[in-house]
Design a protein around this nucleic acid. Sequence first.
RNA 1: GUGGGUGUCGCCUAGCGGCAAGGCGCCAGGUUGUGGCCCUGGAGACCGGGGGUUCGAAUCCCCUCACCCACCCCA
Length: 421
Amino acid sequence: MAELRAPRGMHDLLPDDETLFEHVVSTATRVARSFDYHLVRTPIVEDARVFLRTAGDDSDIVSKEMYVFEDRGGDRLALRPEGTAGVARAYLEHGMASRPQPVRLFYWGPFFRYDRPQAGRYRQLHQFGVECIGDPSPEADVEVIELQREIYRALGLTDLVLRVNSIGTPATRRAYEEALREHFRPHLATLSADSRRRFETNVLRILDSKEDAAHEALRTAPSILEHLSVEDMAHWDRVCALLDELDIAYEVDARIVRGLDYYTHTVWEFEPRAAGGQSTVGAGGRYDGLIEAIGGPPTPGVGWATGIERLMLNLTAAELAPVAPPLDAVTVPLGADGAAACARVAASLRAAGFAVRNGTPGRSMRAALRAADASGARFAVIIGDREAAAGTVQLKPLVGGGEQVEMPVLEVPTRLRDAQA
RNA sequence: GUGGGUGUCGCCUAGCGGCAAGGCGCCAGGUUGUGGCCCUGGAGACCGGGGGUUCGAAUCCCCUCACCCACCCCA
């Protein structure tokens, strides 16, 4: 066992996994671009206040999961635990409110949560997310949900369940919280300690509790949907109607309240049908109060994030992981002149767009061909001193049938291209 | 933070008081410059770490660390 290891809950992404990671990111990127969303890269580190002011003091992210540190200049910084607050900060800082609204952005990269690791849960995780900022309409909510669903579909994940809810505006939420308190007050003695604490700090999140999930008080709790104002209800009804219009299947789940305080109106989650522990693949919501919370003008926004590692787990389980594209050729150098010629031929083939490994010089032909075979390359390009002197190569197909052919160096790119078709 | 499980070459596994084995992978060979299958050889392990019991510990006991799984919560 190596003495030095990657930090707890953080992982090296080795070449085999990287193929899948790249597949997820490139697929999501392609779909997002097709909806006119554009990549934004914000720093991995932010002023801690960006998250402290937005996520809510009782959110798990702030209360126990954030990596916070002081830099050498005494600034209080945080490794970003989620993406929306940083993107909102960038929107504000760069005056994106003066661009045509809404501003459609996507991002991907690492996020950090100081959490106890387990299957599908990491201290450094990667998310892909989108934000649609500056449009208060239900149409924007449904656009980002549709975009999310299209990404899952493009990846081949068609068995995800979409659960949707509305948590209204802060005003209706406050009224609902009062109703919830009245409902839970008589049951306080029998609820878990965690729920009793939430009763004071954030009563909504009692509904989140799995510890008390079977408690009678949770089953009989009033639904937030019954407490929506007329305006909230209009927004919610429109979201449902648009989802129906687009044939996006969903289930209404009044217990989804989201872990972060900044959400308003529509909130949702995508989960595999065979739900296990850490199963949520992606989740999102509307966050009309967030930009105000970090010092900007009232600005509506809606977005979601999806866990790249969790997508990778689901794709692997469903055998939807792609195989890496094969190497086009490996050179087999024999002798000093052959080695020099191999390097030149490899360079010219790469310039022509092929992926070429230059074979290790000094090996026996047997060993070199074994290595070429193990690489999975389509062709071996054999050059010994004889071929080097003649300006030719022995082009040997490594997969399927096909005879080895000696040909001038200049003909090799054409042959490789023909063989691709 | 709370439970449970597991630690033996790079990976997977056997051994469960008496010389640490095997498979995969890696390297080199199997007579001239030709891969896969097969065969031979090689490198690679202070058996997670520390302490104890014993003539003798990978093996039994204690402590510790790490990882995994689950809870909590979430991506």
